[in-house]
Nucleic acid binder design. Structure first.
Lengths: 137, 137
DNA sequence: CTAAAACCTGACACTGACGTCAGAGGCAAC
DNA sequence: GTTGCCTCTGACGTCAGTGTCAGGTTTTAG
């Protein structure tokens, strides 16, 4: 498979694939990629989405491809897993915060009420922000 | 409170705080920040961590500060919440993938076995990657 | 009053993953 | 041949958040 087809099949731009190769994440043998490159590209994308850098991905790639893991790699994997766990926790808390506002405003709108005292950030005066938002544009 | 103290209390650099003000996320009144700025900075950081851009944050900020939300803001909030939900799902799947490797390698090491066929990415030859990793450094 | 400390403005640098463009080559069908 | 598509190399641009430095002003301590 050549780079164009790989790009089509993965939905990843040619530029990105070349970048991956540049980072030694995606080896090509004489302009040909094996069938397995598709899964590999998807793995790379997934790890990028999880906030790993190309260097980190390069580091843990061997353990993702082979079932075999050295103690050092195991450490790295565990570190990253823990980091992702933390990230999930943070995102969950953020989502809950957004959710609280969304459902609260649903409740309010269904009753036609208004509530400016039930702030999530206490101590703010409305004018503080309104003015800043207006002057922003 | 002035910017230095705010920086100390939030653990955010002075430079970043100034950037927030530049983006109209953190209004200052004559070089003075109100007590509530601390919570506000933490909110900003949390939203940044969730992948929101400064523009988006500026857009949804009013609804975070006041309980009141316009339908337009509600849409934006819902969009962001859904995006974060997706992000959480992706991260969870990535973490599970890492976890699978970690626990599998624990099992293997405890038995002193080796398993190169139990790959997570089928169809790869070990040499594909080993060579690419070696030549990387 | 003076010196030090904090602050402001403005600008440029950097990172990382990727876009984009130019120029050059390869390989197919017509 | 040549037309056209795909590829490669190389370089520069982008974006957002932040570091950093220079040079000037304000606030605070003595």
């Amino acid at each position: 498979m050549r780079i164009g087809e790989l790009a089509r099949r993965t939905g990843v731009s040619v530029r990105s694939l070349r970048y991956y190769e540049e980072q030694h994440l995606l080896p090509a043998v004489r302009r040909q990629y094996p069938e397995s490159a598709v899964g590999r590209v998807e793995l790379i994308q997934q790890l990028y989405a999880a906030g790993l850098s190309s260097k980190t991905i390069l580091g843990i790639m061997p353990s993702m491809v082979m079932g075999e893991v050295t103690p050092m790699l195991l450490d790295r994997l565990t570190d990253e897993r823990d980091r992702i766990d933390q990230q999930i926790a943070g995102l969950t808390s953020t989502r809950d915060r957004l959710d609280a506002i969304i459902s609260a405003s649903h409740d309010l709108m269904s009753r036609g009420e208004r509530c400016t005292t039930h702030c999530l950030l206490p101590g703010e005066h409305l004018n503080d922000l309104c003015s800043s938002v207006e002057t922003a544009k």
